[in-house]
């Protein structure tokens, strides 16, 4: 049972990150008087988040849900991508959305207007989402879906190419977006967003005639950092190249459905 909300979470997470065994080797001798006590801890500050992320992933797996985490700068087209994805796939795939922003419900309202359940997380200034926020939001999302099964949960992270790259949310795929007006040097400048992602989307390709954005060069720079990246370039608004993205999501969901049927 998870301590955050009492759900039957699969990992044994306690909200703090040392287990029953107290893995660090603290000494049990009382310090005598004012004598300094030196204790070796050797514990990652990411451990609590990583444990919660593992628990989230087990949760998604048990529910047969595929989860993706979209990260990008503000304004690179994450919400627009989602709106068009829902328009095209909403009939065949049950999609739920978790929106992360510093303030306002605006993005969740845009998604709900498409008839899809959406939860808005407002971080009140924090620059990224963490695994425990996703844990809570996922339960709210299930409630909002009213018991309907979800195939795909899309997490739209806070617009920021730096901090979200450091926090595992328990997603199955991390997807980094760069829009054409932002320029092709983002992989070189923000390497962690690209080394920790599985998919790189170049968006707003309808603007290529107006900006100096050599798609091949941006792709090459990203693949130098992470040769396993799957790269797609498209325009959500004109639909050019968009089918490859839809096909990618379909194959993720279908693979999961096949796994669930076998299990």
């Amino acid at each position: 049972m998870c301590d955050v909300c009492g759900c039957h979470s699969h990992s044994h997470d306690h909200g703090h990150d040392h287990g029953h065994g107290h893995g660090h080797d603290h000494q049990h001798d009382q310090p005598a008087g004012n004598e300094a006590l030196i204790v070796d801890i050797n514990r990652s500050l990411f451990a609590a988040n990583d444990a919660m992320a593992r628990s989230n992933r087990e949760h998604f797996d048990a529910d047969g849900v595929i989860t993706v985490n979209l990260i990008s700068s503000p304004g690179s087209g994450k919400t627009t991508l989602l709106e068009h994805t829902i328009d095209r796939l909403g009939g065949e795939i049950a999609i739920g959305v978790i929106e992360g922003d510093i303030e306002t419900e605006r993005d969740a309202q845009r998604i709900r207007a498409k008839g899809v359940p959406a939860i808005q997380l407002t971080t009140g200034g924090a620059c990224h989402l963490d695994a425990s926020m996703i844990h809570r939001a996922y339960h709210q999302l299930q409630k909002e879906a009213g018991g309907d099964r979800l195939d795909l949960v899309v997490i739209e992270n806070v617009g920021n190419l730096v901090c979200p790259a450091t926090f595992d949310l328990g997603e199955h795929q991390r997807i980094v977006l760069v829009s054409v007006p932002e320029g092709p040097d983002k992989p070189a400048k923000y390497p962690k967003a690209f080394t920790s992602s599985q998919v790189f989307l170049i968006t707003k390709t309808d603007l290529l005639p107006y900006f100096d954005f050599p798609v091949e060069e941006a792709t090459r720079e990203a693949l130098v950092l992470n040769p396993a990246l799957k790269v797609m370039a498209f325009s959500s608004t004109t639909g050019e190249g968009f089918d490859a993205w839809l096909e990618h999501l379909r194959s993720l969901v279908n693979r999961r459905r096949t796994q669930s049927e076998r299990a």
Binding site: A36, I38, V39, I41, L45, F46, T195, L223, V224, P227
Partner: peptide, 20 residues
């Protein structure tokens, strides 16, 4: 070659505490 992959270097670890 240009494909060079980082190994480690991404740790954030509380190593030791001295207290009284």
């Amino acid at each position: 070659d240009r494909i060079i992959i980082a190994h480690g270097g991404d740790d954030l670890i509380l190593q030791q505490v001295e207290m009284e």
